[in-house]
Amino acid sequence: MNSTPTDTDPGTGAGLGAETATAALALADDALILSHRLGEWAGHAPELEEDVALANIALDLLGQARILYTLVGDEDELAYLREERAFRNLQLVEQPNGDFAHTIARQLYFSTYQRLLYGRLATGDGPFAALAAKAVKEVDYHQDHAEQWTLRLGDGTAESHERMERACTALWRFTGEMFQPVGDGDGLDGVDRQELAESWLSSVTAVLRRATLTVPEGPRSGAWTAGAGRQGLHTESFGRMLAEMQHLHRSHPGASW
């Protein structure tokens, strides 16, 4: 948002510094890709209330993504015309929906991170403060929705417990990436990632314990675990997701919709 010439990166339309633009893109991609995955649930949810709720969350995330993209450039160019390797989202958010337990575990991990991150950004005076102040209210609800379902599935029936346990474990290895830097520099207003990681772990641990679930113990970071989405390295299903998302837009170059 800073328009002084010295801070202007020629590569961005809105005069953001390069590091801030990288961070904006990373946050926008997280929101867009998770929104897209949640949109895949439409008409498939376990009950009508969840069709409404998952669409609600998807719409909030899409709204966040659109504001963030606009800070960087043209929203549709950024969403539809970049190749897979140019996307900066976490690998966590691109993971396929799986069963409802996987979707909820993904929501719990991500919305807890997003709530903590946006809570911190909202109290600063950086370029994301205004957006974060609005988004944090939405994300509070996302986190609560995920938490309520984690409790119901974890402490529901034997089957739901087992499914939720499996989902939490399967996605655990994607959670370390949330606390890695978003680019070469630090575009996130100096948010203390170590502290963020600790708050996240204690918050998620508390929910999992209340839900009678085991806190997964597998690795979350290190060269051989998942987690290079911020560098544009994604998982196999992501390319197919993008192909579906982008094909119509790309089939009509220059068209308006």
Partner: peptide, 22 residues
């Protein structure tokens, strides 16, 4: 929804399908 050709159209369509569930 997953193929909507612009983010604006995607948001409108998602809201519409959500309304129908409502």
């Amino acid at each position: 929804i997953t193929r909507a050709p612009s983010l604006r159209r995607k948001a409108i369509l998602m809201a519409k399908v959500q309304d129908e569930a409502g």
